[in-house]
Simulated assay, not measured.
Amino acid sequence: MSTVVETVTDLVTPILEAENFELVEVEFVKEGKNWFLRVFIDKAEGIDLEDCALVSERLSDALDAMNPDPIPQAYFLEVSSPGAERPLKKESDYEKALGAYIHVSFYQSVDGEKQYEGFLQSFDDEQLVLKIRIKTREKEMTFDRKNIAHARLAVQF
């Protein structure tokens, strides 16, 4: 499946660059009996329905023009915004999220927990520092980045 993701990434990148959009993520997944090709895009002002339709049409045309077909099975193409809980994957995602409230889940538990939410204070190649709230007290915690399974922006309640 990674070849589908790589092929779609290569095809969609120039389409997005021409419109000053950012590629957030491409995923090709099977849910039940159906396959889904999902392309998440963003831009500074946010993505609207017209932006999604434009990218969907251009990407669909580019995929249809390829011979042999890079995706032989039937699938649904979905182009959308990453939403309020955008994943943090690239270094630039973390840079933009400095000071923001994020959710982090881990491969191995840290102090008995597999996930934390807090404000991203700093990060480097090896560690990430969050300011978390435990009951009424705030505390900074440092986490090894290699132990992070997923990180995303979070909505604070």
Rank of each mutant, 00 (worst) to 15 (best):
22 E>I: 11
154 A>F: 12
24 V>S: 03
28 F>K: 02
39 V>Q: 05
27 E>L: 12
101 Y>H: 15
148 I>S: 00
56 S>W: 08
89 K>D: 00
29 V>N: 13
31 E>C: 02
155 V>P: 06
111 D>Q: 14
146 K>V: 11
142 T>K: 14
98 L>M: 08
11 L>A: 14
25 E>C: 02
40 F>S: 15
136 T>A: 10
57 E>R: 15
132 I>G: 03
93 D>M: 07
33 K>W: 06
66 M>R: 15
150 H>I: 10
93 D>G: 03
15 I>P: 03
148 I>A: 03
151 A>Q: 02
28 F>L: 01
93 D>V: 06
46 G>A: 03
140 E>W: 05
89 K>A: 01
139 K>C: 00
83 G>D: 03
145 R>E: 04
142 T>Q: 11
107 Y>F: 15
135 K>Y: 12
58 R>S: 11
19 E>W: 07
113 E>S: 09
115 Q>D: 13
152 R>F: 02
39 V>I: 15
28 F>N: 10
13 T>V: 09
32 G>C: 09
84 A>G: 08
16 L>D: 03
151 A>E: 06
70 P>T: 08
101 Y>Q: 01
57 E>Q: 14
6 E>G: 05
102 I>P: 01
72 P>C: 08
94 Y>E: 04
119 F>R: 13
79 V>F: 00
81 S>C: 04
62 A>R: 12
30 K>Y: 05
30 K>G: 06
19 E>D: 14
91 E>F: 04
56 S>T: 10
60 S>I: 07
128 L>V: 14
130 L>S: 04
102 I>S: 00
125 D>W: 02
112 G>N: 13
153 L>A: 13
132 I>F: 01
129 V>G: 04
114 K>L: 13
